[in-house]
Every structure is written in structure tokens, then in C-alpha cells.
Design a protein around this nucleic acid. Sequence first.
DNA 1: CTCAGTATGGAACGATCGTTCCACACACTT
DNA 2: AAGTGTGTGGAACGATCGTTCCATACTGAG
Lengths: 193, 193
Amino acid sequence: MPWGKNFDVEATLDKVMHAFWTRGYEATSMQDLVDCTGINRGSLYATYGDKHTLFIAALERYDNEMRRKLLSSLEEHYGPREAISQLFKAFLESISDKGNNRGCFLTNSALELAPHDRSVGKIVAHSQAQIEDFFARMINKGKKLDEIPAHVRSTETARGLLASLIGLIVLTRSRPDRSLLHSILDDALRRIG
Amino acid sequence: MPWGKNFDVEATLDKVMHAFWTRGYEATSMQDLVDCTGINRGSLYATYGDKHTLFIAALERYDNEMRRKLLSSLEEHYGPREAISQLFKAFLESISDKGNNRGCFLTNSALELAPHDRSVGKIVAHSQAQIEDFFARMINKGKKLDEIPAHVRSTETARGLLASLIGLIVLTRSRPDRSLLHSILDDALRRIG
DNA sequence: CTCAGTATGGAACGATCGTTCCACACACTT
DNA sequence: AAGTGTGTGGAACGATCGTTCCATACTGAG
């Protein structure tokens, strides 16, 4: 009878996720993953499959554990307007002084792989659609609660906020300047009153 | 006496630029560049230096030949409000039906390399600052011409438009859907009246 | 026509890539 | 206590990476 792995499969996938997240797919070698997880090459292959399969698993983990949980947590704990604001702040406040700003794993993948890799493209597109839906839901709820003016167009504004959020995320990686990023947040919020 | 190269240095750099632009730095090998330019390996190295130096040259070429010329052309031929609109449309209309949407070379590099490569980071940050300045200039000019309401805050809105533009560019690569991208343009323009 | 000297094309370098494979170690069953 | 079979660690695979080097081809000067 088998007797289970003696390493934490989820925790290891988490380390892999952070490696791909920070450096991207092509720039992260299997050797890097062996080093940063402490798990042997053979075990990685036996457990997760090849590099591409492992990347997809890491990306899906991010989508489930980070994006999905963040959105539902915001939706649960905040009013609609504040939930939108907090989503922006989550990325704004993730920038560190020591230059290791990872931004958003899904957005990084959107540029590096989505155009050439169908399975990555699907995950990324679905995730972006979910964020768009989140914004639309918050706007509609905000209108009902009179937090957001009735003249705001839900669909269009939700898409606009999605673009602003992605723009902020990109700038997080290339110009991690708090004042710049704060202006973007303020400008985004002005659209919903 | 030397007798000049017998290939077009600028035209070749242009092909290199498109290769890096489409696939990124890590995913483009020197062999790919040899193939797509038709120039031999040795000549590439003798003319442009190593891969990283060649990439920087290609990125600077993009910044000069594409970004800079586009902005000054828009500034010259259009009124301020229309110039802003046309900048967005330049990317919106670049999406093709056959999936080879390259987006913006500088934005691609912002995510792939800027956080880890200082020289790339400088070029990208400078370019983004130039676009931000372009927006601010157009907004101020628009206010003077009464094209743009006086209550619009120049600096903040310029930064907001920069984020929206970058967001649109990213979505160009991951969700090349004309209706989605058009909503983002409309939403962005609504901010300046 | 001859010589000088550079650009060319292709072979070849060591390093590293993703991946496979196998002998060994170990925990559970009998 | 012995046997069974899977997870582990590390060596090793061929391919490809970025880069270098050299014999050859070719253009201009003398």
C-alpha cells in the first residue's frame, strides 16, 4: 500500500506560484523551482507533471486562492463603494520599498503568455471577466443603496474600472510611486461619485 | 579601408523589434532573430552586441520611432480632446482577427523585465511619464479651448488616463474584444467631458 | 591585377534548458 | 522480521541556450 508524500503539496505549489509570479514563466527554470521549494526534481515531475502543467496549476491556484477569495471577502465585508476602493488598495499597498513588486500573477501572464497559450488565455480572460462582473455587481448594488449615482452606466463603468485596475497593476511593477498610484485610485473612484 | 555593411541596419533592427515585441525577451532566442532577420549570427553580434544590448536597442527604437512619433503626430494634427481619443484608438484598432495582437512593446516590457532590469525599467518609466505628460498637456490645452471642462484636474486625470490606456493595452492582448475595448475608450473619454 | 581588411556563414563552445531514469530509502503489510 | 512497492535524490539525457571563433568571400585601394 502507498504511504503518502512526505511534503506538503499545497504549500509547495504555493512556493512555485510565487516564483512564477515574481519572474514569469520563461525566466523561471525547473532548477529555480527545485531550489526555492526544496523538493527534488523527480518529485516535482511525479506530483505536478511537466513545467507547463505545473505553471497552469500555479496560475489556477492564484486565481482560486487569491483573486476569488479576495473578491468574495471584499463583497462580504464592505459596502459596494468601499469594496471597489479596497480592491484597488490591495494592489496599491502591496508595493514594497525593496523593489520586489510582483503585481498580479494573472496580469503578468496576460502579457507574457495569454496571446500564445490558449489554456493560459482562457484562465486569464475568465478571471478578468469575473473582476468586471464584480465591478458591475458593486455598481448596481451601490445604486440601489444610493451610494452611487443612478446615472452611472454599470457595464461601461465596470469595464472602465477593470482597465484602470489593470493599469494600476502594471504601473505597480514599472513605476512603484505611491503618489502616482494614489492619483489613479482617486481618479477611478471619481467615476462612481 | 572598410566598405560598409551590405544589409540595412535600421530595417534589421526593425525586424528584431517586432520579434521581441511579439514574443518577449526570454521567449525570443538568438536563433529566432537569425531566422527572422535573415542576418547571420556573427553579423548580429558584431553590429549590435549581445542579446541584452540588442533588446535595449530595439526597445529604444520602439520608444523613438513608435511612441514618440505617434504622440507628436497626434499633438500636431488633432485638437486636444481628439488627440487623446486617437491615442486610445491607435491601440484599439491594432487588434487583428488572426490573434497576433502585440499590444505595446513598452507595456509588455514593463511587466516582463522592468522590475528586474534597471535599464529596461528606466526606458519604460520615462516613456510612461511622457505619455502622462502628453495627457496633461492635452487636458490643459483643452481647458483653454473650452473643449474640456475647467473642473477636470489635470495631473490626476492624466494619470487616470494613463492607467486606462495601459489597461486597454493589456486587454488587447488577453481579451481582444472590440466591444469591450470600445467601452473602455468611451469610459475614459467621459472623464474629460 | 594584387593586396588589404572587413563582413559573412557556419561550425563549435560550455552552460543550462526541460525531462527521464534508476538505485536507494523508507513505511506499511503480513 | 521479511517483503513489497512507492517516493526520493541525483546522475544523466539530448536539445537548445547565448556566445565565440575562424576560414572564406568579397569590396575597395594602390
